[in-house]
């Protein structure tokens, strides 16, 4: 709807500027050239990654560069998968990403609901305490967290990777705002029906929150799938590495970098996100916009 509004807005402006259509056509062509040029440049690294991942070693090292492989080498993906424990990396990435995404969401869901709809003495002060953690960058908590994990013997373990990341101020904040916006009457009715708070949350509030829930889950999934510093610090063995870190060892396997394998590895890391993005692009873009315009 917004787009049609914007499209309408452009027309009267340019029409009143001049009714000579050649000028408008020229500027429209220019705009198209700018946008298409930018999109080609921005999309190029993806093309480069895919194209290189399907080349032979010979093609990778040919000068001048070969843009497209003569014959796509799909087995590069099979080979790279066996070259390093990619199955293990993927498994770790999935365990890490899914448990934090879900755990963080559950924490935020319950806390957000409580802050929005339940009474408690000094509730706002407690909420403020949660909100303040927004201001604490993860870089400053990194070293003490590492020392704590060491004392707990949690280095290189799943609990060490997951537990410290489970809490979330962001999800709490957004869900609280959302639950506050729901009409009181709904909850009053549920209370009269004798629904407990947990049931009110799961059966009443949650089903009414699908858009924000899917946005939150998607953003969290992407953020944790892409996480680099935390899993790098917490893990120290090949068998515990997540994909973004595991893939880096491809550079140490060969004497000269065999880019076709490294690019195939990078593709494996990025592919699930690209698929997710293509399926749910609207939520991603709206999530980004909402976060920014609200903030």
């Amino acid at each position: 709807m917004r787009e049609t509004m914007a499209a309408k807005a452009v027309k009267p402006g340019s029409a009143s500027g001049s009714d000579l259509s050649p000028r408008r056509t020229v500027s429209s062509v220019l705009v198209h050239l700018v946008v298409i040029g930018a999109a080609v440049l921005i999309g190029f690294p993806f093309f480069y990654m895919l194209s290189t991942s399907l080349k032979t070693v010979k093609e990778v090292y040919t000068i001048p560069m070969v843009i497209l492989p003569a014959q796509p080498q799909w087995r590069n993906f099979v080979e790279v998968w066996n070259l390093l424990p990619f199955g293990r990396f993927t498994f770790n990435s999935v365990v890490y990403t899914v448990s934090i995404t879900v755990g963080e969401f559950m924490m935020g869901l319950m806390a957000g609901y409580a802050f929005a709809r339940l009474r408690f003495p000094k509730k706002d002060l407690i909420f403020f305490l949660v909100l303040l953690t927004f201001l604490i960058p993860s870089e400053i908590t990194l070293i003490p967290r590492f020392i704590m994990l060491k004392q707990l013997n949690w280095i290189n373990t799943y609990p060490g990777l997951i537990v410290p990341e489970l809490s979330s101020a962001f999800a709490t904040f957004l869900l609280r705002e959302h639950f506050q916006s729901l009409p009181d009457e709904l909850f009053d009715a549920a209370k009269i029906d004798g629904a407990g708070y947990f049931r009110q949350l799961m059966q009443l509030a949650l089903p009414l929150s699908k858009p924000i829930v899917s946005t939150l889950l998607l953003l969290a999934f992407v953020a944790h799938w892409n996480a680099y510093m935390w899993p790098l610090v917490v893990t120290n063995s090949q068998s515990m590495r997540t994909l973004p870190i595991g893939v880096q060892s491809l550079r140490d396997v060969f004497e000269f970098p065999e880019w076709q394998y490294i690019m195939a590895g990078a593709t494996i890391v990025v592919m699930p996100l690209v698929a997710l993005f293509l399926i749910a692009q609207k939520q991603f873009i709206e999530g980004a916009v909402q976060g920014a315009l609200k903030g």
């Binding site: 930018a38 892409n226 973004p244 880019w259 890391v269």
Partner: peptide
């Protein structure tokens, strides 16, 4: 076009950094 322009934002920095090294 908006989709293409937005796409780098959701991809893994550590993986795309490898692509840039290669480029």
């Amino acid at each position: 076009w908006r989709l293409v322009v937005f796409s780098p934002h959701i991809t893994t920095s550590a993986a795309m950094a490898l692509v840039w090294i290669s480029m």
